[in-house]
Design a protein around this nucleic acid. Structure first.
Lengths: 338, 338
DNA sequence: GTGAAAGCGCTAACAT
DNA sequence: ATGTTAGCGCTTTCAC
C-alpha cells in the first residue's frame, strides 16, 4: 500500500557508503565520523526514513512489546490502570498489546496464546472472574516468560504481583460503618474464587469481630458482577437479613445495590449505609454520593511495569516479589449517618 | 529468558529433510507427502515448536496487526467498541494494538508514531477532544496507510468512516422531550470542534424549529467533558435559561448535569427532563433511570474492522466510504413526564 | 572510521 | 514431493 519504504540500503547507496555505516550512524555509535553521521541523518530525514522494526526485532530477537490482559476495560479501575501502564511502558520504549478476557477463562487462554505468538516479551495479567484453573499461567511460568499479576491474582500462582491490602481496606470500610452506628452489615461479594473478594470478606469479618459482632456466612451474598444478578442478591439480602449497612466489593456492585435499595423505598444512608471499592469518578455524582475505597491505580500501573521490565531486562530469573500498596477510604454521603 | 526456541531448522535437521519441506508441511501445503507431514507435525508438537512470528512477518513483510486509537477506554462506548473490534480482528487473524489518546492531541500524534514503527498495517481512530489540527491524519493518508475513523471524525478528513446519524438521533431525542411537554430545552454540548457534538446540536435545532420554537445559541452550553466543568455549565444554564428539559451530548455529561440539578433541588423529570447519548449500562441504575440514545457499538466495531481489512488486503487504493448506522432512543424515567 | 559478510527464522521462487 | 537458493531489513562480528 505504501509508496516506497526507504531502507538503510537506499541511504547507503545514495551516499555511496556501506549499509553497516548507515546503521551505525543512525544508532549514534561513537566510532562514526561526524561528517558521515550528519550526512546520513540528514538524508534519512529528507527521505523520511522509518526503520523497519520487524527487521530490527528479528536481528536482535527482541520485540519491545508487553502483553496486558485484563478482565474488562469498561471497569474504571482497569482502564485507569492501563493508562498508567501504557504511559510507563512508552517511557521505557516498550509497546503494549492489550486484550480483554471479558471475565472468561477461555478467552484469557486464547489471549495468552495470541500474544505469545505476537512475540510479547512479558505479561501483565489480572485474572478473569471465571478463571479457576491456573495451568495456563503455570505453563507461562515454566517457560520462564516474564510475568506480573496485579489486582486479581491467586495464591496458587507464585508470581510477582502488585496488589493492595484488600483485607485491611475492607476492615477500614466495615469499621467505618460500625462507627456510624450500623449493627447489621451485609457483605456483597464477588464470585467465591476471586481472591480480592474473599480477602475483602476477611477484613469485613475481622472488623465485625473486633466490635463484638458475630460473623455469619448467611450475611454474605455472592454476585457474579452483573447488574441483574447483583440486584437479585441485594433483594435477597434485604429479605433475609434486612441490613442497616452494606459493604460491596466493588462500586459497580454498589451501584446495583443502591438501585435495589431505592426500589424498595429504603433511604441511603439513613436506612442502609453503603460503602464499596474502587472509587470510580461517578461515585461523586450519585445521589447519595458513594463512599468508596480508592486504590492507587496509577502507582499500581507504574509498579507493575517496573517489575515486569526488571524481569525482562535481567539475564537470570529474579525472585518472586509481592508489592502491596495502600488504599484510602473516601467517606461520602452513602455512609454518613452521623 | 526462554530455554531453547525450537526453529524449523531444528526440526529439519532431526528429520533429515530440508527446512522448506518443514515450512511447507507446517503450513499445510498440499504438495507435501502425507507421511512427511505427519512426521513433521508430530515432532513439532513434541518439541513444542512455536513459529517465530517476527521472522514470518519479515519474510512476508506483513504484521497482521492493526492499531486502534481511542480517546479514553473508561468511556463505555469505546471499551465496548474495542471489544467488538478485538473480536472481529481476532477472527480474521489479526492482532490489535490499542492506545488511548486521553483526549490529547499530542498523545494522539505520538500514539500514531509509535504504532507506525510497531508496523501496524492500518489504523482505526476516533479523534481526541483536543484534536483541531489534522495534519497527522493527512500525513497518514498521504502515505496511503489504511485508515478508518469511527464516531469522532472530522469533515476535513476524507477517509473511510463508520458513524451514526448524529443529527437524526438528536432530533429524535429533542422531539421526544418536546412531545413530553418540554418548552425550554437546553443543550449541553461538548467542545465546539467536535463534530459529533455539533451534529447533535443540529438535530436539536431542527427539532425545535419543526415544533415552532426558535433556536438560540444562548441555550447551548459547551462542556469539556470533565465532571467539574459540566456541573458549572449546568448551573449556568439553570440560572440563565432555567430549562424544563436538557439534551446532553453524552451520558457522562448527563450524569454531571443530573447531579447539578439535584443539588439545586430540582426534580427529574418533573422540573427538568433529561435525555442523552450512549446508553451506558449504568443508565438503568440511576435514579431516575436515564433516557439515552443507544448506538450500535458492536456493529460499529465489526464494520470498522471489515472496512479496514478491505483496505489492507486490497492491492490498490479503495474509494473512501462512509457507513452510517442507525441509533435507537431508549426512553426511561428521566424524560417520562406523561 | 568503514566495509564485507554472516545471520536472525522464515517464505518463496526456481529447480529437480 | 522435496531441496536449493535468495531474500525480508537490520545488527553484528571480524577485518582492514
Amino acid at each position: 500500500m505504501k509508496g516506497t519504504p526507504v531502507t538503510i540500503k537506499d541511504i547507503a547507496k545514495a551516499l555511496n557508503i556501506s549499509i553497516s555505516t548507515v546503521s551505525r550512524a543512525l544508532r549514534g555509535m561513537p566510532e562514526i565520523h561526524e561528517s558521515t553521521r550528519t550526512a546520513v541523518i540528514k538524508l534519512a530525514e529528507e527521505l523520511d526514513y522509518q526503520p523497519n522494526q520487524l527487521a530490527k526485532n528479528l536481528a536482535k530477537s527482541r520485540t519491545k512489546t508487553i502483553g496486558v490482559i485484563v478482565p474488562n476495560l469498561s471497569y474504571y479501575f482497569f482502564s485507569a490502570a492501563l493508562n498508567s501502564i501504557e504511559e510507563a511502558a512508552m517511557q521505557a520504549g516498550y509497546s503494549v498489546m492489550v486484550c480483554q478476557s471479558n471475565e472468561s477463562y477461555l478467552r484469557e487462554v486464547t489471549n495468552i496464546q495470541n500474544l505469545l505468538r505476537g512475540q510479547v516479551e512479558g505479561f501483565i495479567i489480572s485474572l478473569a472472574r471465571d478463571t479457576n484453573d491456573y495451568s495456563h499461567i503455570h505453563k507461562l511460568m515454566r517457560k520462564e516468560v516474564p510475568l506480573v499479576l496485579f489486582d486479581r491474582y491467586a495464591d496458587e500462582i507464585e508470581a510477582t504481583k502488585v496488589i493492595v491490602n484488600n483485607k485491611e481496606a475492607a476492615f477500614k470500610a466495615t469499621e467505618h460503618l460500625l462507627e456510624n452506628g450500623c449493627k447489621k452489615i451485609g457483605f456483597l461479594a464477588g464470585p467465591p474464587n476471586l481472591l480480592i473478594s474473599t480477602q475483602r470478606l476477611m477484613g469485613y469479618k475481622e472488623a465485625l469481630e473486633k466490635h463484638g459482632i458475630a460473623f455469619s456466612n448467611t450475611n454474605v451474598f455472592h454476585t457474579d458482577f452483573t447488574q441483574d444478578n447483583t440486584v437479585i442478591k441485594t433483594l435477597e439480602m434485604m429479605s433475609t437479613l434486612n441490613p442497616d449497612g452494606i459493604v460491596a466489593v466493588s462500586d459497580r456492585i454498589a451501584f446495583s445495590a443502591m438501585f435495589a435499595l431505592k426500589q424498595k423505598g429504603l433511604r441511603i444512608p439513613e436506612d442502609v449505609a453503603v460503602v464499596s471499592f474502587n472509587n470510580e469518578p461517578i461515585c461523586t455524582l450519585l445521589s447519595p454520593t458513594l463512599s468508596s475505597v480508592s486504590q492507587p491505580v496509577q502507582e499500581m500501573g507504574t509498579e507493575v511495569v517496573r517489575l515486569l521490565l526488571r524481569q525482562i531486562e535481567n539475564e537470570h530469573k529474579l525472585p518472586v516479589e509481592t508489592k502491596i500498596l495502600e488504599t484510602n477510604l473516601i467517606v461520602r454521603e452513602s455512609s454518613a449517618r452521623k
